[in-house]
Simulated assay, not measured.
Amino acid sequence: MSKRVVSVVIFGLAGMAILVSLGVWQLQRLAWKEGVLSDISARIEAEPVALPDVVDPEADRYLPVIVTGQFVGQTARVLVSLQGSGPGYRLISGFDVDGRLILVDRGYLAESAPQPDPPEGTLTVTGNLHWPDEVDGFTPAPDMARNIWYARDVVALADHLNTEPTFLIARDLSVPDAPLTPLPVTAQGIPNNHLGYAIQWFGLALVWLGMTAFLLWRITRRTV
């Protein structure tokens, strides 16, 4: 066996081993991510508790809470597109809980529908605390003239609506808030692409194996 054949075999096997190991690593990451998503789902669906006196955006993310109070102040509109329903807005309103003002994401309103005022009087809101990470370098600044926001920037919304930066995404209201459709927190929107990455690495390993075999075939044909 020539030195060239040996070097091709070693190089081919080494490359394939690396690609396969990356695929296996992605499968391990997949198992880890599925465990994380399972824990998040269990947290989201747990029994709601009272709003904590001090809210921690990390420790209290997805925490189910129940609050009683009144909607106050203005309402901000965050542009969204809902599959099956088209473009519309999430309506974000201030909510007074015993003198403590927080943000409540009331749900989805179709773009063509007139914007309703928040329900009046004392009511109860059940939902989950969340701090969506939707702002990046490409997010446009809010269009204040038309009251259109392009992301749920909790800090900026809280400053605009004069509330604390505590964000409650409603799952249920004790009174009707039609024509809004609640968009409660779920784990479905959290990315989990590890299986796709694993398939890509294993596919590349097969391609690498095929290329190595083809190169060896070419070499042996020339030496015959």
Results as ranks from 00 to 15, higher is better:
66 I>W: 06
26 Q>H: 14
21 S>V: 03
14 A>T: 13
60 D>A: 10
52 P>A: 02
66 I>H: 14
6 V>L: 15
22 L>D: 06
15 G>R: 09
54 V>R: 12
26 Q>N: 06
22 L>C: 02
16 M>S: 11
11 F>M: 13
57 P>W: 12
8 V>S: 15
6 V>R: 15
54 V>H: 11
5 V>P: 00
53 D>E: 07
67 V>L: 13
66 I>S: 10
60 D>F: 06
60 D>S: 04
41 S>W: 07
36 V>H: 13
62 Y>G: 02
20 V>Y: 11
67 V>A: 10
14 A>M: 14
50 A>H: 14
41 S>M: 08
17 A>P: 14
58 E>H: 08
54 V>L: 12
20 V>G: 13
18 I>L: 07
6 V>M: 15
57 P>L: 14
25 W>H: 11
46 A>Q: 11
59 A>L: 11
61 R>W: 00
21 S>L: 08
56 D>N: 00
60 D>E: 01
24 V>A: 12
56 D>V: 10
25 W>Y: 04
44 I>R: 08
65 V>P: 08
46 A>G: 09
58 E>Y: 05
20 V>A: 12
45 E>V: 00
27 L>I: 10
54 V>G: 09
32 W>D: 02
22 L>N: 11
61 R>Q: 11
16 M>K: 09
39 D>C: 02
13 L>Q: 08
23 G>E: 07
15 G>S: 12
17 A>M: 14
21 S>K: 04
61 R>V: 04
18 I>P: 00
63 L>A: 03
21 S>T: 03
5 V>S: 06
53 D>N: 11
49 V>G: 03
58 E>A: 15
14 A>I: 15
11 F>C: 14
5 V>Y: 01
56 D>W: 07
27 L>H: 09
31 A>W: 00
28 Q>Y: 09
61 R>F: 04
50 A>P: 01
56 D>G: 05
43 R>I: 03
46 A>Y: 03
11 F>S: 15
27 L>E: 05
4 R>K: 15
19 L>V: 06
61 R>I: 06
28 Q>M: 07
12 G>S: 13
24 V>E: 10
48 P>L: 05
18 I>A: 09
59 A>P: 09
31 A>E: 03
25 W>D: 07
11 F>D: 03
15 G>T: 12
62 Y>H: 00
43 R>Y: 07
33 K>S: 00
55 V>Y: 14
46 A>S: 06
67 V>I: 10
43 R>L: 04
38 S>K: 09
25 W>F: 09
44 I>E: 07
12 G>Y: 01
29 R>V: 10
39 D>M: 03
31 A>T: 08
42 A>G: 10
52 P>V: 01
37 L>K: 02
16 M>P: 00
37 L>C: 05
8 V>G: 14
63 L>C: 04
26 Q>G: 11
17 A>Q: 11
58 E>P: 01
13 L>K: 04
30 L>S: 04
65 V>G: 10
68 T>W: 08
34 E>D: 14
44 I>C: 04
60 D>P: 04
25 W>Q: 02
8 V>L: 14
55 V>S: 12
52 P>W: 01
44 I>G: 08
33 K>D: 00
68 T>C: 04
62 Y>M: 02
23 G>K: 05
66 I>Q: 13
37 L>G: 00
6 V>A: 15
